[in-house]
């Protein structure tokens, strides 16, 4: 009986985590299209619901009623598995994201490693989809995407090491609490920029959306997908983007902490600060999509390996020597 109680409590918590994430993914898609439209002096989706906020819901409804087409030459099991893997991994990662000091589903010791592991797994959805379609464009898209994600993961990992040096713990809550005096975006500003750009590349966002470059590859790895399966890829992609924004917020923008702990700022509830910061980062993502042209593939690879990797590695040395010289190295829990 006791086990059942715990079980249902956990299920209840999970539902109250997953549903807001899914709803906010739908809203974020709308926001993205809206910002994109406004930058280009269009209106963007503004018909369904007030300001068009229900546009994503309408799109989802449309996707549900569309037929799912599985190509005859496709590897059926892997073809069907690919969008499921993408979506599941994008949602599973949210388990460790702390919305405030108490609002966290799983407060594990190695939270940041967990996030990193999940985001390195998410390349599989794309590879599986691209390969199982058994067609040229999806395969090329999948190869591009895999190479891109693996290379930018390296620089993201090293940036995370930079932050961890200043924190002294792998726990996400500890990372946020370590920023009580100063957000890491100020001492580690170059790393924040590199993190932002790497996050763009990691989530296949423009200007690094080469896996789905329309002009060359039709739609990349999702060319052969239709109906709800396409929508799942889509949802997974946006959930990943949101996750990267949350990660950036936790690592650099001080998570749920207000900018300064004074009266008018700290009456806002902690999760609201977190959401505002995530939205701010997502707004930057959306603006970048609207104003920057797509990179060439070799430029993308050069940027990852020849610029970001050396810069972030030397910044690790800099941070470490600074901390050691001024005896600021964090001990456990501070």
């Amino acid at each position: 009986m006791e086990y059942l109680n715990i079980f249902f409590q956990e299920i209840y918590k999970i539902i109250f985590l997953v549903i807001p994430v899914l709803v906010s993914v739908a809203m974020i898609v709308w926001l993205d299209r809206r910002v994109w439209g406004l930058v280009q002096k269009r209106k963007g989706p503004n018909v369904v619901g007030p300001f068009g906020v229900l546009q994503s819901l309408a799109d989802a409804l449309k996707f549900i009623f569309k037929e799912i087409i599985i190509p005859a030459s496709a590897n059926k099991v892997i073809f069907i598995l690919a969008p499921i893997v993408t979506m599941t991994l994008a949602l599973v990662a949210w388990a460790v994201i702390p919305m405030s000091e108490i609002h966290v589903l799983a407060d594990i010791n190695v939270g940041i490693l967990y996030l990193f592991a999940i985001s390195s797994l998410s390349v599989y959805g794309i590879i599986m989809g691209g390969w199982a379609s058994n067609s040229k464009y999806p395969f090329l898209g999948a190869i591009r995407s895999a190479a891109q994600m693996v290379s930018y993961e390296v620089s993201i990992g090293i940036i995370i090491i930079n932050v961890l040096l200043c924190v002294g713990s792998l726990n996400l809550t500890d990372i946020v609490l370590a920023q009580k005096n100063i957000w890491f975006v100020i001492p580690l500003f170059p790393m924040f920029i590199i993190f932002f750009i790497s996050a763009l590349a990691e989530t296949n966002r423009p200007p690094f959306d080469l896996p789905e470059a329309e002009a060359e590859l039709v739609a990349g790895y999702q060319t052969e997908y239709s109906g709800m399966m396409y929508a799942m890829f889509w949802l997974g992609e946006y959930a990943n983007i949101l996750l990267m924004c949350a990660l950036g917020t936790i690592l650099f923008l001080g998570g749920w902490l207000p900018p300064i702990d004074i009266y008018p700022l700290n009456i806002l509830p902690a999760p609201l600060w977190m959401i505002l910061k995530i939205l701010f980062l997502f707004f930057l993502f959306a603006i970048t999509k609207a104003i920057v042209p797509r990179y060439r593939y070799d430029q993308l690879m050069r940027l990852g390996w020849k610029v970001f990797l050396p810069v972030s590695l030397s910044y690790v040395v800099l941070t470490a020597s600074f901390l050691v010289y001024f005896e600021l190295l964090p001990t456990k829990g501070s």
Binding site: I108, N109, V110, L113, Y114, F116, A117, S120, L121, V123, Y124, I127, W131, F139, I143, A146, V150, E153, G157
Partner: peptide, 25 residues
């Protein structure tokens, strides 16, 4: 051994197995 488990996921699943898949494909 949560650190080992996570590193196993990151290194083997996230990087090595991707290259395996690449070669096989």
């Amino acid at each position: 051994a949560e650190f080992l488990g996570m590193i196993l996921l990151i290194v083997y699943v996230g990087a090595v197995a991707v290259l395996f898949l690449f070669v096989v494909m």
